[in-house]
Computed example of a mutant assay.
Amino acid sequence: MALLPFYTKFNYGNSTPELMKWVALCTLPGLITQSYFFGWGTIIQLFWSTCVALFLETLVMLARKRPPTTALRDNSALVTAWLLAVAIPPLSPWWIIFIGLIFAIVITKQLYGGLGQNLFNPAMIAYVVLLISFPIQMNSWIESTQQSSNSISFIDTFLLIFLNFNTANLPLQEILTGVDGITMATPLDLFKTALHSGKTVDEILQQPQFKDLIMSSWGLVNLSYLMGGLLLLKLQVIHWHIPVSFLSSLAIISGLFTLFSPGTCAPLSIHFLSGSTMLGAFFIATDPVSASTTIKGRLVFGTFIGVMVFIIRSWGSFPDSVAFAVLLANMCVPLIDYYSKPRTYGH
């Protein structure tokens, strides 16, 4: 497969597999931090997701009467699997990943013709389908093991994911919702719920979950993905235009609302250090196939995502909105590229 235009300036032998491999490797700081705070579930979901993605990719290529190695070598299925695995709650049942990757690999990617032909980000299509179809499973985040004594062992985590019960024969739903339940809402969800219940922003920020957000589990996870994203920029695996315009537009619109309409929306610290902001800015929005390919277009693309993230988080039904914002921006890519493509000399 010809190298994508997004990668033409890089010095990795013009190898798409190498570039995809570096994208996966640079998620490791965030993955390790996420596993440290939320337990073994993230690691187990990662390995399960990888196996399912490679299986589905092979199955579809055989159905299309093409050699599976051609698709497997580009590592794009691996990246899709990893992004979906870190985006879902650690104790999600095994079939969540399986259904999600059917939409990501089979429908969004291969039915459109394979890598380079898909209009939408495969991992984000899968995430949105799962979020809308299975809201209970997709919102059952467990409390950080550093904030709770209810840590779950590797064996129990494995059994809960694949068999729906632990070594004490307690079902997953009872563990998550029982008297000693360990489920928790994300900071974005907590903030939106508290704001809608009539509390002021100052009152919300005094709650324990928000007092030291930068050192909280969600804050450190976002900072870890930021570190991995900066490494991608350093290695020139991605361009700076999309992440910088994404984060800048989110910061500007958040600052304007904080200045002119205080008490109505979350402050910038909540937007930057919770949810999937940094993962979205550096690893999801920069997808070379579904993102804009021109310099001006990438700036518009990133800005659009940042604005949409703020709008959906502030007034939408879902607390986090990176997936929805990226998919809306994907729809606009043909129009963005048409009006931002450089003029040929003499025209």
Results as ranks from 00 to 15, higher is better:
19 L>S: 09
19 L>H: 07
19 L>P: 00
20 M>F: 08
20 M>H: 03
20 M>L: 03
21 K>H: 11
22 W>S: 11
22 W>V: 10
22 W>Q: 15
22 W>H: 14
23 V>I: 15
23 V>E: 09
23 V>P: 00
24 A>L: 08
24 A>K: 01
24 A>N: 10
24 A>Q: 09
25 L>G: 05
25 L>T: 06
26 C>D: 13
26 C>M: 14
26 C>T: 15
26 C>H: 09
26 C>W: 08
27 T>I: 06
27 T>D: 08
27 T>G: 14
27 T>C: 14
28 L>G: 06
28 L>E: 12
28 L>Y: 03
28 L>R: 04
29 P>S: 08
30 G>S: 09
30 G>Q: 12
32 I>A: 14
32 I>Y: 10
32 I>P: 00
32 I>L: 15
33 T>W: 04
33 T>V: 13
33 T>K: 01
33 T>H: 02
33 T>A: 14
33 T>C: 12
34 Q>T: 08
34 Q>W: 02
35 S>L: 01
35 S>Y: 04
35 S>D: 11
35 S>G: 13
35 S>A: 13
36 Y>R: 00
36 Y>M: 07
36 Y>H: 02
37 F>G: 06
37 F>C: 05
37 F>A: 07
37 F>Y: 15
38 F>C: 03
38 F>R: 01
38 F>S: 06
39 G>P: 07
39 G>D: 14
39 G>Y: 04
39 G>S: 07
40 W>C: 02
40 W>V: 00
40 W>Q: 08
41 G>I: 01
41 G>K: 03
42 T>N: 10
42 T>F: 03
42 T>Q: 08
42 T>D: 05
43 I>C: 03
44 I>E: 07
44 I>A: 02
44 I>N: 04
44 I>T: 06
45 Q>T: 10
45 Q>V: 05
45 Q>S: 08
45 Q>D: 10
46 L>W: 09
46 L>R: 02
46 L>V: 04
46 L>S: 15
47 F>Q: 03
47 F>W: 10
49 S>P: 00
49 S>H: 01
49 S>I: 00
50 T>H: 09
50 T>D: 05
50 T>W: 07
50 T>C: 08
51 C>E: 07
52 V>M: 04
53 A>P: 01
53 A>F: 02
54 L>Q: 13
54 L>V: 01
54 L>Y: 12
55 F>N: 03
55 F>D: 04
55 F>C: 11
56 L>W: 05
56 L>H: 02
56 L>R: 00
56 L>M: 10
56 L>S: 05
57 E>D: 12
57 E>F: 00
58 T>W: 13
58 T>Y: 10
58 T>P: 00
59 L>D: 05
59 L>C: 11
59 L>S: 12
60 V>W: 12
61 M>F: 06
61 M>Y: 09
61 M>D: 13
62 L>N: 10
62 L>T: 12
62 L>D: 07
62 L>V: 15
62 L>I: 15
63 A>Q: 10
64 R>F: 11
64 R>K: 13
64 R>C: 07
64 R>L: 13
65 K>C: 06
65 K>T: 09
65 K>I: 06
65 K>Q: 14
66 R>Q: 14
66 R>P: 00
66 R>I: 12
